[in-house]
Amino acid sequence: MRVGVLTGGGDCPGLNAVIRAVVRKGVAEYGYDFVGFRDGWRGPLEADTQALDIQAVRGILPRGGTILGSSRTNPMKIDGGVERIRENLAKLEVDALVAIGGEDTLGVATRLYEHGVQVIGVPKTIDNDLGATDYTFGFDTAVNIATEAIDRLHTTAESHRRVLIVEVMGRHAGWIAIHSGMAGGANVILIPEQQFDIEQVCAWVESRFRTNYA
């Protein structure tokens, strides 16, 4: 069997580790051949590949980013995109795809599967907004970095008697905000899933000013 591998969307810690694990496991235990597609879904759309064997993944475990490159190319938004991918996979004799990505990348993978392409999705997103998994890789690192930032800002807020607002990533999901906010001792945590009263938030902020507490 010949398997294609791609990484899509934003980069995060762990991408190269997943690529390495997939290749090493597939070669050693199943005798599969692998091919890497460059820059997310652009790779299979344009048949842009690179060698992906044991030698190619040697030494990449501690490296950040992804050796395959990434992009936000969406074949579902391109006329004939699905057919082009199917044709290119057939020409390259690729039997299945391993798509490593978040909501957008795996959304495309699902649609391709519905069109007959054999796809396995690996959940990657710092937002942790994918179902059927407790934690997506990249999320833990994002929480730790956000928590460290909040920890450092406590002394600044106290020294200058200010209330500081920390905005974190997460798009429509509040996982990073609630985990880092709780770990960092935030006074107020606002997440998109929960409605809030801005007047109440202002009252909390004013109470912090009165107590000189950061």
Rank of each mutant, 00 (worst) to 15 (best):
47 A>W: 10
155 T>M: 01
143 V>L: 05
213 Y>D: 15
122 V>R: 03
149 A>T: 08
171 R>S: 12
136 T>K: 04
117 V>L: 02
171 R>N: 09
100 I>F: 06
124 K>H: 03
120 I>V: 14
166 V>P: 03
144 N>D: 15
190 L>Q: 05
136 T>C: 09
165 I>V: 15
200 Q>A: 14
16 N>E: 03
137 F>V: 02
177 A>G: 08
20 R>S: 14
54 I>W: 09
201 V>K: 04
159 S>L: 03
152 R>T: 08
13 P>H: 04
59 G>K: 05
2 R>E: 10
72 R>M: 06
200 Q>Y: 13
71 S>L: 03
176 I>D: 09
112 L>Q: 06
91 K>W: 01
108 V>E: 02
8 G>A: 12
206 E>H: 14
26 G>E: 07
102 G>I: 04
139 F>G: 14
9 G>K: 06
204 W>R: 15
168 V>W: 08
74 N>S: 07
15 L>K: 01
156 T>E: 01
6 L>N: 09
165 I>M: 15
28 A>W: 11
91 K>V: 13
178 I>P: 02
83 E>N: 14
109 A>F: 09
83 E>H: 11
57 V>D: 10
19 I>L: 08
147 T>M: 08
196 F>I: 04
203 A>K: 07
204 W>G: 15
15 L>E: 05
52 L>A: 05
81 G>N: 04
27 V>P: 02
197 D>K: 10
143 V>I: 10
203 A>Y: 01
190 L>K: 02
155 T>H: 02
89 L>F: 01
90 A>Y: 02
26 G>K: 07
53 D>F: 13
203 A>T: 12
104 D>N: 07
78 I>K: 01
197 D>V: 09
101 G>V: 03
165 I>K: 14
54 I>D: 14
193 E>K: 00
82 V>W: 03
105 T>M: 05
64 G>H: 00
112 L>D: 07
5 V>K: 07
192 P>D: 11
144 N>H: 11
202 C>D: 15
62 P>A: 06
150 I>M: 11
73 T>E: 12
25 K>Y: 15
210 R>Y: 02
71 S>A: 03
133 T>D: 13
100 I>Q: 04
41 W>N: 02
167 E>G: 12
24 R>T: 15
212 N>A: 12
197 D>G: 08
26 G>W: 06
49 T>F: 06
90 A>M: 11
38 R>V: 11
36 G>Q: 09
55 Q>K: 12
113 Y>N: 13
173 A>H: 03
140 D>W: 07
54 I>A: 13
